[in-house]
């Protein structure tokens, strides 16, 4: 007569060696005489053997202790932008740049070029030499603004999104 199907609990205790000699003999017999028990034992045994073999201690970097001791009195560093906030800021910078560029493409921007005449100012400073005029070029200012925005956007993209992702991926364990 074929023996009864054993529970996973009993099979795991059998693998752990937690059963008495009599119990072990009985379970062994049940396994030998029931194909379902044999298959399930094999499935659990694969996991058991793997965990026994693979669960070993890992070694951290050589300067681990040194870093801990250095950090004992260090105050918590301020948190840099999260990827989500970084992404939103990049979008904001790009929108501002696009608006500035669209202004450049219209003719109205050229009419904003102005000459300041310092002699017209109500100031009477004799010892300081003042330039007579100062030209403010709006086109140049907007171009500068767009370039600075794009540089900032690239830095943000690198610091808040790309670098953390690649760092995380390079350390990923599979």
């Amino acid at each position: 007569m074929e023996k009864k199907k054993l529970s996973d609990d009993i099979l795991l205790q059998f693998l752990d060696g937690n059963l008495s000699e009599a119990e072990t003999d009985f379970i062994q017999e049940s396994i030998n005489e029931n194909n379902e028990n044999q298959v399930r034992l094999r499935e659990l045994e694969i996991v058991h053997e793997f965990l026994k073999r693979e669960t070993s201690l890992l070694t951290p970097s050589t300067n681990f202790t040194e870093k801990v001791i250095k950090g004992l009195h260090k105050k918590a560093s301020p948190v840099f932008l999260s990827p989500k906030n970084g992404f939103l800021l990049i979008i904001g910078l790009l929108i501002a740049s696009l608006l500035a560029l669209s202004l450049l493409s219209t003719d109205t921007i050229n009419q904003l070029q102005t000459n300041f005449n310092f002699k017209d100012l109500p100031l009477n400073i004799k010892n300081v030499k003042m330039p007579s005029t100062f030209t403010f070029n709006m086109t140049l200012f907007i171009r500068g603004f767009v370039i600075v925005n794009l540089i900032l956007a690239f830095i943000l993209l690198d610091r808040t999104i790309l670098r953390p992702i690649f760092q995380k991926r390079s350390n990923m364990i599979f």
């Binding site: 201690l57 890992l58 070694t59 951290p60 681990f64 870093k67 801990v68 995380k168 350390n171 364990i173």
Partner: peptide, 24 residues
């Protein structure tokens, strides 16, 4: 340190982060 690091690795699945967490 090895036990602390191993526990952190098992949870985080990432050695860099695990080292930081264990030091913390």
């Amino acid at each position: 340190k090895s036990y602390a690091f191993t526990i952190a690795v098992k949870i985080l699945q990432n050695k860099g982060e695990a080292e930081e967490a264990a030091q913390d």
